[in-house]
Design a binder for these strands. Structure first.
Lengths: 229, 229
DNA sequence: CGAGCGATTGAAAAGACTCAACCACCGTGG
DNA sequence: CCACGGTGGTTGAGTCTTTTCAATCGCTCG
């Protein structure tokens, strides 16, 4: 395998920085960030970090998609989040001093930068607006997860699939949704077979188009109505 | 109704401060906190704040228990957390600038102090160790919720009930668990009837004792084994 | 004492899961 | 170039958990 880990995307010219928590950084801070961070290439299915290990820093996605998941009792994955370009991964564990409670894996070929814990915490302490951004993000995720819990508890698998497809539509934007049936099932929280059957129903109802592996949403309003929130 | 809202519990002598995020406050900070906070009595079922309204500050529980919940599509509650003495409620929404995504209601008679948003944010900005405590708390809750999501998605109702009873055992400590069947069902994420049937099973299996409304856990190890995590 | 809420029980129905088999696509190596 | 193996996708049938609906009970509060 080709090692592209030396490839260095500069923060100054990073196309997705404007969508990230680093958007508000002044030039000096961007330069400093660029010095501190390292940049790595990840193959599909390569892990960023693993449940149980100790965090050494945070990851910032320059290109590609990453799944964040936990494992239930029998090892079955539950996807908590699919992160895309511009998102920072793993900063939650930076403050607790505890090992990761979740794992993260590249879903496709990715360019991902890494910022060491020390540097990151230093930014938090010295840069108020960045800190506020992080705290806002923490709060936002917290309420998103409260809603996720409620959906899991109260909605049928069918409704949950609609919810997840709408979330994925945001993450994948113009691209087609590109996940294995198993990953999709592990996001919705159901068995793979059930997911496949429901996807077929959705196709017949004109909600989605199925191109083998990839999915296109063709009736977003219909999904919204089905999802019911 | 008797208005006891003038009753003032002083932070200096607050018995539960040692269990709270204010534990590390120095004397000066405690005095200042005591000046800033107000103190109120809440009746059973009285609301602290409501989903959709804008947060004006945070709540610190001096005495009693509070349920934090969202509402699903048809208005059914999903309990996210039961907070007890020493816990601070509602600080998540303090950073996002958004309205509350959850509601909070007193489960019994409570003494609860209130700290205005401005004062709270000022503490965050000026008191590093307090801020770190808050961030640690945010992170901890985030991973707890990831686990909650996974449990909802992968565990049977029976297993989830065991999980919830174990959580409640921590919250209620020496006291008996005192929740309506409906609240309990809304925490586990099931129908009230199902919950009642399972509770009966648990009783027959010697896991819990039922005293009309109140519950005692008599075989914690059995529950842990059943809960499976 | 009566109203009403919370708790309980039973029976039937529905949703989702499991298991088992089979298909289809893809890359590899002969 | 083609057979092979493997992974991911699909389908069917049967089962089980959980929900829903309906009815009843019992305690508590005014």
């Amino acid at each position: 395998m080709l090692d592209k880990s030396h490839k260095h995307v500069s923060c100054q010219h990073c196309a997705v920085r404007k969508d990230s928590l680093f958007a508000s950084f002044c030039e000096d801070h961007v330069n400093e960030l660029n010095e501190q961070k390292s940049c790595a290439f990840y193959k599909k299915n390569q892990g960023l970090f693993l449940d149980g290990s100790f965090p050494r820093g945070v990851f910032c996605i320059n290109k590609g998609k990453v799944k964040v998941f936990t494992r239930g009792e029998e090892g079955k994955e539950q996807i908590i989040q699919i992160a895309g370009e511009g998102e920072i991964i793993g900063f939650r564990s930076m403050f607790s001093g505890e090992p990761y409670k979740v794992s993260a894996t590249a879903l496709e070929e990715c360019n991902i930068c890494f910022i060491a814990k020390e540097d990151f915490l230093n930014m938090i302490d010295t840069n108020t607006s960045f800190r506020n951004g992080i705290m806002r993000e923490l709060s936002k995720e917290l309420s998103e997860r409260a809603i996720f819990i409620t959906n899991m508890a109260q909605k049928s698998v069918r409704e949950r699939l609609a919810c997840v497809l709408l979330i994925l539509d945001d993450v994948y934007k113009e691209e087609e949704i590109n996940l294995t049936r198993e990953d999709l099932a592990n996001y919705v929280g159901t068995a793979t077979e059930t997911l496949i059957r429901l996807l077929k129903d959705f196709k017949e109802e004109g909600l989605v188009e199925i191109h083998t592996r990839k999915l296109d949403i063709i009736n977003k309003d219909g999904l919204i109505k089905l999802a019911g929130n």
